[in-house]
Amino acid sequence: MSTLTDFDLVALDGAPLPLAPLAGRVVLLVNVASMCGFTPQYAGLEKLWRDYEAKGLTIIGCPCDQFGHQEPGSADEIASFCNVRYGVTFPLSAKLDVNGDQAHPLWQWMREAEPGVLGTTAVKWNFTKFLIGRDGQVMKRYAPTATPESLVADIDAALKA
């Protein structure tokens, strides 16, 4: 069985983004996009980050261009957009795939650990969210329509566990 800390990402700026240092933290991973109807969720994610980071929550946004070509920009363009429009300070990974043969292994693991509606493992759209508990295991998967604010009770419970 894998845990979150068995995986590594690459940060948006190209630096390594190892997940091992997140052992014992609650983590929310989100596939994000700059040109999606759900893009305003960046504001709610940033609020969660500011309110809960010191309490043990890490948020990682993972830009993905697999849904309607809604994340077409370069790393610099994504970083600028997130900073200027939403003041994002939580970590962002390099652009990655969440579905298909080239899907990042972390996203393959999360999809299989917590299937979606009717047991499908595929991520259906941007801003799908996965909550990882302190034990490094997937606790819950959220649809893109689930706002960051709607996750507060689950995050509080995970932080107390």
Rank of each mutant, 00 (worst) to 15 (best):
S2N: 14
D6N: 14
D6Q: 04
V10L: 11
L17E: 02
A23N: 08
G24R: 00
R25Q: 13
V26L: 03
V26I: 05
S34N: 09
G37N: 04
Y42S: 08
A43T: 14
G44A: 09
L45Q: 02
W49M: 06
R50V: 07
A54V: 07
G56A: 03
T58F: 05
I59E: 02
D65A: 05
G68Y: 12
P72N: 07
E77T: 13
I78Q: 03
V84F: 14
V84N: 07
G87Y: 09
G87L: 09
V88R: 06
V88G: 08
F90E: 02
K95N: 08
K95A: 03
L96V: 14
L96T: 13
V98M: 07
V98S: 05
V98F: 10
G100I: 12
A103E: 05
H104P: 09
P105G: 12
Q108A: 06
E114S: 15
P115Q: 08
G116Y: 01
V117Y: 12
L118F: 15
T121P: 09
A122G: 04
F127N: 05
T128Q: 13
T128M: 10
T128N: 10
K129L: 03
I132P: 12
R134S: 10
G136Y: 07
V138M: 00
K140E: 05
K140V: 03
T147K: 15
S150Y: 03
L151C: 10
D154V: 05
A158R: 02
A158K: 06
